[in-house]
């Protein structure tokens, strides 16, 4: 199913009608549908939010979206919810804001949901055409994709996985949020090529370790390496001779998070791709990372 339709399918009928009233061109550039309690729903189009023609979002509507996103199974998504998101069918990710419920072990839940951000997944086939030859000159070398949130890292990652897999690399994908492959009921919603193996739902570090043990990958792919555990898992894979393809938050010319700094300093990555998004247009900049 089209990514926009997958996202809109989570909305209750009235909100869905408002979303589907967007024209084809607007749907093509729609990045997110955002719902905030007591405010009208908005659509994020090419980096700007526009109000949609629907009444204020109520708590009941927010709950209905979560119910649709989880298949009426909030209990099965509690761990994800504690990390601030829910994975829905079709590779749709729903970001959740509300009041955190804290317990002795940290965050135990989320109540009084106040905002939802429904991310529209995209399969941008061909988006890596301009950088593909550079990334695979000689052979594919470990690559880190960097951009600010919402910059299009996951879209590029998905396309590179598809291309690498099509080129014969065994690509293991640690897809914690189900966004990369859009797996639903065991079947991938996005084409990741003929030789990609996807571990969905497991925390990235644990998923990566399982993939390394079980699937003998040539390339390990991971979205948003942000925590120490993710970095350790990537470095462990690199130490085993597996090439890496990962994304992380970062801005060209801006600072780096400690996790990204650690990844770059490790020497495990040989190239980085900066993604810049201006007025809905994405540009990619490839840089070699000098050894040592």
């Amino acid at each position: 199913m089209d990514g926009f339709l997958s996202a809109a399918a989570l909305l209750p009928p009235d909100l869905r009608r408002a979303a589907l009233a967007l024209g084809p061109e607007e749907r093509d550039v729609c990045e997110e549908l955002r719902l905030r309690r007591d405010r009208p729903m908005t659509a994020l189009l090419a980096g700007r939010e526009y109000g949609l023609d629907a009444g204020p979002v109520t708590e009941t509507l927010l709950r209905a979206v979560l119910e649709a996103a989880t298949g009426a199974s909030l209990h099965a998504a509690e761990q994800q919810l504690c990390r601030g998101f829910v994975s829905a069918p079709g590779g749709v990710r729903v970001g959740v804001c509300g009041t955190a419920v804290l317990g002795p072990g940290g965050m135990e839940g989320l109540r009084d949901v106040s905002s939802l951000s429904i991310r529209v997944p995209r399969a941008a086939v061909g988006c890596a055409d301009n950088i593909w030859e550079r990334l695979t000159a000689g052979s594919f070398r470990s690559t880190l994709i960097l951009s600010p949130p919402g910059g299009g890292k996951t879209t590029l990652l998905r396309e590179l996985i598809r291309r690498l897999s099509g080129a014969g690399y065994r690509v293991a994908v640690a897809d914690e949020r189900g966004e990369i492959a859009g797996v639903s009921g065991g079947a991938a919603g996005f084409d990741l090529g003929p030789s990609a193996d996807v571990m969905t739902g497991a925390p990235k570090a644990a998923g990566a370790a399982m993939l390394l043990r079980a699937m003998n990958p040539q390339v390990l792919a991971m979205d948003e390496a942000a925590e120490d555990g993710d970095v350790r898992a990537l470095l462990a894979a690199a130490g085993c001779g597996v090439r890496l393809l990962a994304t992380a938050h970062g801005e060209r010319g801006g600072g780096e998070s400690p996790a990204v700094a650690a990844l770059l300093a490790s020497g495990a990555f040989r190239r980085r791709v900066w993604v810049e998004c201006r007025e809905g247009q994405r540009r990619y900049f490839v840089e070699d990372i000098p050894c040592g």
């Binding site: 709950r63 989880t70 009426a72 209990h75």
Partner: peptide, 10 residues
Amino acid sequence: VLGRYGAEEQ
């Protein structure tokens, strides 16, 4: 209640 709340509440 089913499907709408956490496992403990259900």
